[in-house]
Design a binder for these strands. Structure first.
Lengths: 222, 222
DNA sequence: GTATGTGAAACCGTTCACAGCA
DNA sequence: TGCTGTGAACGGTTTCACATAC
């Protein structure tokens, strides 16, 4: 069965909200209640879960703790994923330091930068290495996912290096679409796209400059 | 006409790729060429642009520079948007410092934190203020968009404060769905959802724990 | 009675295919 | 001729509505 990737993204959201409810002491959650928390249609939730099994009890709902475990299993959140980051500037350092304090599903095992002055620094417990060492270090440390935190003009090259070094997935913070071989999965995490979507929403249509129509082509606009 | 919000997100991508092509000296771009660069269907691009006007020349294509301006106008990228960030930890500081070096469409005009020890620090040229001052400072500085860079357990409260202070949009880096009044637009920029989508893609189905079916309910699985 | 699981319907976005125009 | 702009066809996702199970 084909599972829409947007359904996968929603599973993450369900898990988060279930955890919040669980922390509040809620033991059983109906799809309606969870849907409320997520701002979503209840049938959507039931359909999404149905892709993977039957996790609820008819007439009752879902046991929060149990469903959390199910989703964590589907998304494979219990494994500690090993990440290597390219770019130890503002964003890269923030990611490294952040990970240090979060007991999450991932851990950084390597960091790389092109700038000599950054090499050797320890950030969040990880030493920054030169990109020439990427191949060796990625393999030695078993990094499975590469994180791109470099300027856009260098992002594709960083991706090529990561792919050559053997990562299977790339989380891309640069605002471009990476070209990668089919066996390497990529996800975009660039927030400037999100910000620009906000700009649009915040701009009333009438305030946009009026565009010229081409030379009298429109006689009767519908 | 209803414009799908995903079309808006693509406009950002078109603009980026057009700028890259423009820098390479390309003057005229066909929808096929742009589609190649973006990894997308050409008709999609023409449809997306058609929501906003007629920007191309039949038999020729689009003039890169001109189309860039059109999209910048649609997304309102020429205005300097004024942002205020809540949370001056790793992520918040990285955003502040990053913005300092980017001559982009936005600028940070305020930063807030709940932790006393962070108050008064200058990060990326912006002084960190206590959240009690949010109302005054947001208004005084004319911050239009709030950025949430705090831990998830405090994100909703941060959003409420921003809304009360009068921001019209919120860029949310916390991994929860914010509840906001209808007149405030929100966009989620949390990357853990993206990362979890990667986990799923990288996990072969057979490696997931097999789930029990409920007590003999399935006689003949289809 | 109540809430899940799921076919069927409705809806929406994408792609096709070609008319229209430079 | 060549490429845009766009109605129509298509395909996929969302929502409805109800049979099913507790």
């Amino acid at each position: 069965m084909k599972i829409p990737s947007i359904a996968i993204a929603r599973l993450s959201v369900y898990a988060r909200n279930l955890e919040l409810l669980d922390q509040k002491g809620v033991e059983v959650v109906s799809s309606v209640r969870l849907a409320d928390a997520c701002g979503i249609n209840p049938a959507q939730i039931r359909k999404d879960l149905a892709y993977f099994g039957q996790f609820g009890v008819r007439g009752v709902g879902y046991y929060a703790k149990e469903l959390i475990l199910e989703i964590r299993n589907i998304l494979n959140l219990d494994k500690k994923w090993r990440l290597g980051v390219v770019g130890a500037g503002n964003l890269g350092s923030a990611l490294l330091r952040h990970a240090q304090f979060v007991d999450g599903s991932y851990t950084f095992v390597a960091a790389f930068d092109r700038k000599p002055k950054r090499i050797g620094a320890k950030i969040g417990g990880i030493e920054v290495s030169p990109i020439e060492a990427m191949n060796d270090i990625v393999k030695k440390m078993g990094a499975e996912i590469g994180v791109i935190a470099v300027k856009p003009d260098w992002a594709q090259e960083a991706a090529d290096l990561l792919v050559a070094a053997g990562v299977r997935g790339i989380l891309n913070f640069a605002p471009i679409q990476l070209q990668c071989p089919a066996h390497v999965f990529t996800e975009n995490a660039d927030f400037s796209l999100r910000l620009e979507a906000l700009y649009y929403k915040l701009t009333p249509a009438r305030s946009r400059r009026k565009r010229h129509m081409k030379s009298g082509s429109v006689i009767a606009p519908k």
